[in-house]
Write a protein that binds this DNA or RNA. Structure first.
Lengths: 195, 195
DNA sequence: GTCTATAATTCGATAGAC
DNA sequence: GTCTATCGAATTATAGAC
């Protein structure tokens, strides 16, 4: 029965991919060897190459994500910050989506291709979402600052693990972030001096 | 003349350290070999070990920083956000101090010891500075959120280099960040629902 | 004080048996 | 479809000549 829905090779492949996501997310691209992943997946190192051709392509498969940003056009303008913040915390805390995000953010600082992918995600997913809810014409800088806020929260909580951030309950984190995002959305561009 | 103020070995050592800071700051710990640094410093690879014992200790020397946070106790409470933000931008833009910060932030996500050092800097330098200006008793979460804001800005501008962030003039960046920090400092803790 | 030569690992990837 | 054995390259670090 060669074309059954779940062949043994498919299950092995899935185990390898799960192990890769976990280890890449925890130690980054350079900190993990194919042998490490094979050990974690209880598979033979040669199989990783057979199924994924190279370490780079295995990493690319492990770093595949979709932010699934919520539709914001119908929301009350004053709620957008909270909606985005709640979605952010939920996505990062859920292992099914958070692991892939960790893979990306962990390796982006030292992997040029991963950094490029994050810039593409910003341009293709974050900027359009902010543009959709921002009345003013130039909303690019707002999207950039919101992205820096979100990534700052993710970096300190899930990557660097500052105790003051990891100890904070998720809902409290979401409320702080929501208020900050809303502050950016409601602000006008500052062109000259004075707060 | 063996004990002259600047011996040749001292100058070689300084060249090695400068090259290490530059390359570690750009590619991270794992992305740079001792041969790379030796090439950049125009020195022999064996000398790096002779002067710094190991790659780890050379990295530690390159990652040595002091935030030199300004004295805030005398400042007007409403100015603290701007003062901190201006200091942040200045420190990151100046190559003499910014290079070391880049070394730290670039490698912290994949280097456990570097992450530990950042946590120590946060606990030893950032938290005390925020405590000094915060009237309320529990200011630890404020320090954590301010740190996440600052690191988010640094990450997107100097490490990931999102175009929307790198294109922003330094003084505009400082004003945005200053307003956000001030928002954090002026806020009260959120314990239950409602913005 | 500086450099050559190399030891000792470790890695990604391949070839081929089973 | 899975595993054994191994190649070739790159790494940190050392030993010793000059």
């Amino acid at each position: 029965m060669p074309n059954q829905p779940t062949r043994k090779s498919d299950r092995t492949r899935a185990r390898i991919l799960a192990a890769a996501r976990e280890l890449f997310g925890e130690h980054g691209f350079d900190g993990v060897s194919l042998r490490d992943i094979a050990g974690q997946a209880d598979a033979d190192p040669a199989l990783l190459i057979r199924y994924f051709q190279s370490k780079d392509r295995l990493f690319a498969a492990a770093a595949e994500i979709d932010l699934r940003l919520p539709e914001l056009t119908g929301a009350r303008p004053d709620d957008v910050g909270c909606i985005l913040a709640a979605h952010f915390v939920e996505t990062w805390e859920d292992p099914r989506t958070g692991t892939g995000l960790r893979v990306l953010l962990r390796s982006a600082p030292t992997q040029k291709e991963t950094a490029e992918r994050m810039r593409a995600i910003f341009a293709g997913q974050v900027m359009p979402a902010i543009r959709a809810v921002d009345r003013s014409g130039a909303s690019d800088w707002k999207a950039a600052i919101i992205a820096s806020q979100v990534l700052g929260f993710a970096l300190t909580r899930y990557i660097l693990e500052l105790p003051a951030m990891t100890h904070m309950p998720g809902d409290e984190l979401a409320r702080h972030l929501g208020r900050l995002i809303q502050t950016i959305l409601d602000s006008e561009r500052i062109t000259d001096a004075d707060p």
